[in-house]
Design a protein around this nucleic acid. Structure first.
Lengths: 207, 207
DNA sequence: CATATTATTATACGCTTGAACAATAGCGAC
DNA sequence: GTCGCTATTGTTCAAGCGTATAATAATATG
């Protein structure tokens, strides 16, 4: 009975592979299909190795959730340029791939369904949510200032809630039924809606 | 070893109890925590009974998903009155309890995360989604007609997508972080946003 | 090249899972 | 009342779960 050959992965790489494999399994089989054995197979290692990198399966899953949130928020958090451009890019990024696709929402939903159950996931969730909405709120404050519109805290808050809702909702529609929309339709609808909400052009026709 | 006493439930009742118990377990422990045994305990019966009412656990879960969708869409589908009132009620119903609460979204998310995996759930989902959006689109067509605004199919479609997104997104925000909003705040923001989007009053200040 | 270190494999363990099935208690029909 | 039907119980089973641990192959170090 010969033992399999293998190679020792360099610093931190195996960890990342295991997290990726975890997400692959969740997206493909759901949370309950993401077993240690399946994840290990996907990562090309044996099950025992999981416990060499993580204290428990739950801890690995929690770190996988952090990775999901990062993939959903990082791109939009780093938009650059003048306020108008940043707002436009923020919307477009959130409503096109890779942020908006069916794998993303499967992962997102799998974790959201556990947020009520698991306090650790709940904390990770709240951090991510507040960061996202604050990013948007700051963006709106800058934009309204440039447009010489009222930009007091209360106004910005209401706009941020509404536009956050709009973007989230359209993101979900796009992820869940992307085939029901024409290319670029969701982004166009979002741009038009945001202009109507703010009563100001965001130059969405430039594109 | 005496056998437990029990009572034979009347027509269909036990079935309903099992479905309710399934949803309770999913909301409380997540999909993977909703085991046949837990569900049976919750319903006050033994595990074996599940297979007397359902072909398999999966079938029971699928029927539970139908129940969830019904609970999320039935109320809003039966609004009555003039178009303006119906539109207002539609929005308010979807953004207040019992439709908008953390249990609802836990259930919804648990199933959504499985939609990509399970073709049966996918079909149930698509039916529910299209019904919901068509309801909204019809509502908007009636409303725009009353307001003497353009109400061609393409316009209604775009409005329906946008407002559906807005309502869904605010629903999620409310469900996931209800404590971050003041009483009635989400409904007020939704009403104001819809008015801005449609460029028409829906009489949201009457209330 | 020899040795120490550790990342990785392989196997085993106790538990839970969905399902199958025989036994039986409740209840309506007559 | 008692008989027959079936809803319900209680037990069993194989498979799969997360975890523990010992053996070992790969690499770093000198």
């Amino acid at each position: 009975m010969n033992r399999r050959t293998f190679h020792r992965a360099p610093e931190g790489e195996r960890r990342q592979e295991l997290i990726e494999a975890t997400l692959d399994c969740i997206a493909e089989f759901g949370l309950k299909g993401a077993t240690v054995r399946q994840i290990a197979i996907r990562a090309g290692v044996t099950a025992g190795l999981v416990r060499h990198y993580f204290e428990s399966k739950d801890q690995m899953v929690a770190e996988a959730y952090r990775a999901v949130i990062a993939s959903l928020t990082d791109k939009a958090a780093h938009v650059e340029g003048d306020p108008e451009t940043r707002l436009r890019d923020f919307i477009a990024i959130n409503l096109t791939e890779p942020v908006a696709d069916s794998r993303s929402i499967s992962l997102w939903a799998a974790f959201i369904s556990q947020v009520r159950v698991d306090p650790i996931l709940a904390e990770i969730h709240r951090d991510g949510y507040l960061t996202f909405r604050n990013t948007l709120q700051d963006l709106l404050a800058d934009f309204l200032a440039v447009k010489n519109k009222p930009a007091d805290a209360e106004t910005c808050r209401a706009y941020a809630i509404a536009i956050n809702g709009l973007v989230d909702g359209l993101w979900i529609e796009g992820c869940l039924a992307g085939d029901l929309f024409r290319e670029g339709e969701l982004v166009a609808i979002a741009m038009g809606s945001v202009e109507a909400l703010l009563g100001a052009s965001i130059g969405s026709d430039k594109q």
